[in-house]
């Protein structure tokens, strides 16, 4: 029933942001993602959950072609952003990644100042013509990432000097600074304390107003709190994909149920 609804939406619907069809990913001979078909809707938060090693990160990285950097990685199938095949030969991954931003599992600020960390993306994409514009983008991004108050007095200090949670928020600020349409977040809160987590979740909720957000998380509660749609991966398969409340209250697949109730993991 759910599947039918999805299919109906795809046809002629413009609030599908990313659609993946029969996606396969191989690391050399390892088949890491098996025939995954999923639609990421615009202005919504989609959560990927699943046991460790099931391929969440791998699939997430397919969506902005970060897997291109891994020599042994091979992606098959069809992934479209706004109806355009992102693996088409004519697509420059650089342009794609400006539209599909990413926040990584481990905070990875550049070893530069906080300001430069945020300003780097806008600079290389030519988003600001003047210093004032750039300043404004930096401030806006830091505010969105709930880091402004802590960082405003130390913008010229190295980003690597921040605490782990602050670093992660800096990375989020860096990702939103380029004005992406889709934001991919790979366990963004795994290094954060509950307060910072709440801030980030709030931020995610706010980002939803303008972007489509995909978040990988190991926390059921977080998935339940922030997402509207949830996808459950298991051993490279997309086991179940649907409305979050339904997945958590009334899963169709027994594997989903046992995972969210903590029996497999």
């Amino acid at each position: 029933m759910n599947d039918m609804q999805l299919d109906q939406r795809v046809v002629g619907s413009d609030d599908i942001k990313i659609s993946a069809r029969n996606c396969q990913v191989f690391y050399g001979d390892t088949h890491a993602i098996k025939d995954v078909t999923v639609d990421i809707e615009d202005k919504m938060v989609t959560a990927f959950i699943g046991p460790s090693g099931c391929g969440k990160s791998t699939f997430l990285r397919c969506l902005n072609r970060m897997n291109d950097t891994i020599e042994s990685c091979r992606v098959e199938g069809d992934i479209r952003l706004d109806g355009e095949d992102i693996y088409d030969k004519r697509v420059d991954p650089v342009q794609l990644r400006a539209k599909v931003g990413m926040v990584f599992q481990k905070p990875n600020p550049f070893p530069k100042s906080i300001y430069d960390n945020v300003a780097y993306g806008p600079k290389i994409h030519g988003l600001a013509r003047t210093k004032a514009e750039l300043d404004e983008i930096v401030e806006r991004s830091l505010r969105r990432a709930a880091l402004w108050n802590e960082a405003k007095d130390r913008l010229q200090e190295p980003g690597t000097g921040l605490s782990g949670g602050q670093q992660q928020r800096l990375c989020i600020a860096r990702a939103v600074a380029t004005g992406p349409e889709v934001l991919l977040m790979d366990e963004p809160c795994s290094a954060l304390d509950p307060i910072a987590t709440a801030q980030v979740e709030e931020l995610i909720d706010e980002l939803r107003q303008s972007y489509s957000v995909v978040i990988v998380t190991h926390s059921m509660q977080q998935a339940a709190r922030v997402s509207q749609k949830t996808a459950f991966f298991h051993l490279g398969n997309l086991v179940e994909f649907g409305v979050t409340s339904k997945i958590f209250t009334n899963p169709e697949d027994p594997r989903t149920e046992s995972y969210i109730t903590g029996r497999i993991g």
Binding site: M66, G101, F104, N108, F110, G121, I124, A175, T178
Partner: peptide, 19 residues
């Protein structure tokens, strides 16, 4: 992770290397 970070904000390979 630094390369990922740079590529992730949309830097090209050359920009990643040189910046």
């Amino acid at each position: 992770s630094i390369r990922d970070a740079a590529l992730g904000v949309g830097a090209s390979k050359v920009q990643t290397v040189f910046h």
